[in-house]
Structure formats: structure tokens, C-alpha cells
């Protein structure tokens, strides 16, 4: 036994290591099972899994990569929040400063390209799940949760698109949010909205319709920036996190990665 191994055994035999990892080195069946069971992160997995279920050509690892990219977005996003103020006066120049003055200023690049990659990977995950028929019983509910997560991912990216406060951001959000004013009944240019009146006074107008609710104004201005910032950094990530927990939990409860019945 060389010095290196003896050092390793000394560390793993001590009280500190033993307080963190409550099992021996995962070298036999029992300790390998314990490695999964006694770790809060790894216990999302079952202990054993069908061999074809982990083949890369079957799952493409796309669901896992989507989750990993979400974690990248959370970490880079939190770091970006240190440098960014969601006001019309500062937003654009904070982004510029991020590029010019911050050491290793890759944060914004990683955040943006990670978001694009996450959108592609979640689409491919859906493609795989559909083509393997994995939405079929008993996984109907989890497919529905996945569809909601897909929509929320697009909304996360959409709300983040406004934050750099440049021309690209402002007009992309203007185009996207203009549709809200055509919501049936709730948008002032939508069908049937003109029928909702009290006497002669229209109840749905540009100052209180669905688009106003989204932008907190009649145009993409300072209020919209703040609103999108809060949605992007707090509201949507919290909802997504909860739904991811449900999604993962249900994968286990519905029998793990799908396979021929």
C-alpha cells in the first residue's frame, strides 16, 4: 500500500469524513446503494436502473442537460444581479460596464448562450419523450408538467431578453407583448372587448387591459423593465424550481426512465 492510498484511508476513516458520508467507499453493492440513498442530491435517482434506460442513444441526456443548464442560469444569474440595476438610467450602462470592467466578464455570455442552449435542449427532450411514447400511461401527468416547464422556460428567456435595455431588447419585447392587447375580452383591441361596458363607458381600454398588466404601462418603459426583472429573477425561477421538483419526483413514482412494458 503506497503513501497515497494510506492517506486516503486515513481521511476516510476519520470522524469528519464519516460525518459527511455515512457509508464506506462505494466498492460493493451495499455501499453503492448507500451512496445514492444517503445523499440528498443523488437520492433523486433510484438505486438501480434498467440498462437500456441509461443508454445515451435512448435518452440523449437532454432532460438532464436542460436541468444542468438551468443550474448554470441560476448561478450566473445571481452573479449578474450583483452588477445590474433594473432602471432605465443604469441598465444599459451596467451591461456595458460588465463587458468593459469586470474581470473574466463571461457571465453575460454564459447566461445568454446557456439560455438559448436550454431552449434547444428542452425541445429535444420533448422530441425524445414523444418519439419513445413516454407520455403514455402511467406518465400522462408528468408530460403535462413538462409542457408547462417548456412554456415557463420560454417565458424566462423572454423576460430576460428585455433586461439589457438595448434596441434589440426593447423592440423584441414590444413585438411580443403587442399580442397581449388582442387577448379576447381582456385586450382593448381584442375581439368582444368592446362589448364589456358600463353604460357607455368601456371597461377594457389601453390603460387597464392585459398588455397594461404585463408591461405596467402602455409602452415598454421603466415599469416594464422593473416588472420583467422581478418576473425573471424571482417569480418564474421559483415556479420552475417547484415544478422541476414535481417533475423529478414523478419520474421516480411513475417507474423511472421509460422502457418497453
Amino acid at each position: 500500500m503506497n503513501l497515497f492510498d494510506r492517506f486516503g484511508d486515513w481521511v476516510r476513516g476519520g470522524q469528519v469524513w464519516g460525518s459527511v458520508f455515512r457509508h464506506g467507499v462505494p466498492r460493493d453493492r451495499r455501499t453503492r446503494a448507500m451512496a445514492i440513498l444517503s445523499n440528498v442530491f443523488l437520492h433523486l435517482h433510484p438505486i438501480a436502473i434498467r440498462k437500456s434506460g441509461i443508454r445515451l442513444s435512448f435518452t440523449w441526456c437532454m432532460g438532464g442537460l436542460t436541468f444542468f443548464l438551468f443550474l448554470v442560469e441560476v448561478v450566473t444569474g445571481v452573479l449578474l444581479m450583483f452588477y445590474y440595476r433594473p432602471t432605465v438610467e443604469y441598465a444599459y450602462f451596467d451591461i456595458q460596464g460588465l463587458r468593459a470592467h469586470v474581470t473574466l466578464g463571461l457571465l453575460r455570455e454564459m447566461h445568454r448562450w446557456g439560455a438559448h442552449a436550454m431552449i434547444i435542449s428542452i425541445w429535444l427532450h420533448m422530441l425524445r419523450v414523444f418519439l419513445t411514447g413516454s407520455y403514455k400511461p402511467p406518465r400522462e401527468f408528468n408530460w403535462g408538467v413538462g409542457v408547462i416547464l417548456l412554456v415557463l422556460t420560454l417565458l424566462l428567456s423572454f423576460t430576460g431578453y428585455l433586461l439589457p435595455w438595448d434596441q434589440l431588447a426593447m423592440w423584441a419585447i414590444t413585438v411580443g407583448s403587442n399580442m397581449a392587447r388582442a387577448t379576447p375580452l381582456l385586450g382593448h383591441e381584442g375581439p368582444l372587448a368592446s362589448l364589456i361596458t358600463v353604460g357607455d363607458v368601456p371597461l377594457v381600454h389601453a390603460g387597464d387591459d392585459a398588455r397594461f398588466g404585463l408591461l405596467a404601462g402602455t409602452f415598454v418603459g421603466p415599469n416594464a423593465l422593473l416588472r420583467f426583472y422581478v418576473l425573471h429573477c424571482v417569480f418564474l425561477p421559483v415556479v420552475v424550481t417547484v415544478l422541476i421538483a414535481v417533475h423529478f419526483w414523478r419520474i421516480r413514482k411513475d417507474g423511472g426512465v421509460s422502457g418497453p412494458l
Partner: peptide, 29 residues
Amino acid sequence: EAGSDDKVLVWPDLVYIELIALVLCMVFL
């Protein structure tokens, strides 16, 4: 995909695939 009885342990078979996938993903990004 057949052979549902043919199970492998998640540690190390799946955990390592996941680790390699996320390292490659991080390198790419």
C-alpha cells in the same frame, strides 16, 4: 430497449454518465 430485468447500479453507471455530460456541456458553453 428490451431486457427490463437487466438492471445496473446508478452508482457508478449513471452518475458518471451525468458527470461526463455536464463537464462536456460546461466546456462547450
